[in-house]
Write a protein that binds this DNA or RNA. Structure first.
Lengths: 194, 194
DNA sequence: TAAAAATACATACTGACTGTTGGTAACATA
DNA sequence: TATGTTACCAACAGTCAGTATGTATTTTTA
């Protein structure tokens, strides 16, 4: 048990990660409201003092979890996207959506990102996070499809938001109905073709 | 100050309504989490004892507010629907959606129904409420459109859910972009036509 | 390298809030 | 009018979020 010597950066990152990991587990399992900081800190192996040293309050920790979850989500989707060879812009939208749905087959992720986050994080801040991750890709996809003339010429941001809403709702569907949802989404998107 | 004599039913309904009215105001203004029962009871002109006599807990009161809000919403939409003369099933969907968006131009209503309710009320119970109100109408509309052969033959429930998601997202849009959202929704629905 | 400063954490405390309990007042029933 | 039932109130108990103050560890400075 030597090697007790750690740089501040290491200590810092270590406990931050432990806190975020424990928080992600508990928020995913019990939801934001039912998660209490004593249990959370204990699960992370630190005291509440450490939590409040690193995060302003419970909500700030939740925001950190949401950011990380968004980043992981984007990672999974991009990985799936690169496996595909370049299809047309409409197919790209549909396949991107499928990748999103696949990455959303995790009830904790759904709970955090789709159920709790909108209620806990104020609108503007959450929009900003969304804009940096998933929605950015979707926006580019829609923009490309419109510019290529592959789909009807519609305001890009609203259309991207609406497609996002479709995928979010489908992600919350019972898994045995997912196929039907995907079929309906495909029909909706294909219906936009020029 | 006579006429202090009330039947139990009157007392009961009186304080229940006072509580629900005060709760609707505070939930709408501050959100569920930031609403506390001492202030709520005071605003209703009763004590917390009365609140907990009529409702099991804070969440039960919130559920009562959500039910009432859904009922009012359905009322507004039906009123708008009866003003229209019978159009085709696709137009009916679009106009029903417009009525929904109009009825949703109330930030408190959005906060309660679209932001807080999904986080506070467990999925099954909220689905049940939804099914009894707004979604029921939408489901009928989609079913009619499919049966009439006006739109593509797709699984009805998933499609209704997806259209519902579209309108929910549009309802949360900045009001100056509402026109663009409506245009995009129209295009999406029209794209389903056979 | 010793002293000083800054950073990371721990412990203890405070105020607030939720749900409960045991009682009182108002109405209903026999 | 007596008894039961329903509506309501006041005080209490437990929990939790956030804070304040103290200590240990690493970094900087003299």
């Amino acid at each position: 048990m030597q090697e007790g010597r750690k740089t501040q950066e290491e200590r810092r990152e270590g406990t931050r990660r432990a806190l975020i990991a424990a928080a992600r587990r508990q928020f995913a399992e019990n939801g934001y409201a039912a998660t209490n900081t004593p249990a959370l800190a204990a699960a992370a192996g630190v005291t509440r003092g450490a939590l409040y040293h690193h995060f302003a309050d419970k909500q700030a920790l939740f925001e950190a979890v949401v950011e990380e979850e968004h980043a992981l989500l984007a990672l999974a989707i991009n990985a799936a996207a690169e496996a595909e060879d370049e299809p047309g812009p409409v197919r790209a939208l549909i396949e991107g959506g499928d990748a999103y749905l696949a990455a959303m087959q995790d009830s904790g992720r759904r709970r955090i990102l789709l159920i709790d986050a909108p209620a806990v994080i104020e609108r503007e801040k959450l929009d900003a996070i969304n804009a940096r991750f998933g929605l950015k890709t979707l926006l580019e996809g829609v923009g490309a499809a419109v510019e290529a003339g592959a789909i009807r010429d519609l305001p890009v941001m609203p259309l991207a938001q609406l497609l996002d809403a479709l995928f979010d709702r489908a992600a919350l569907a019972p898994s045995d109905e997912l196929g039907d949802y995907r079929k309906a989404i495909k029909a909706l998107i294909r219906g936009l073709k020029t």
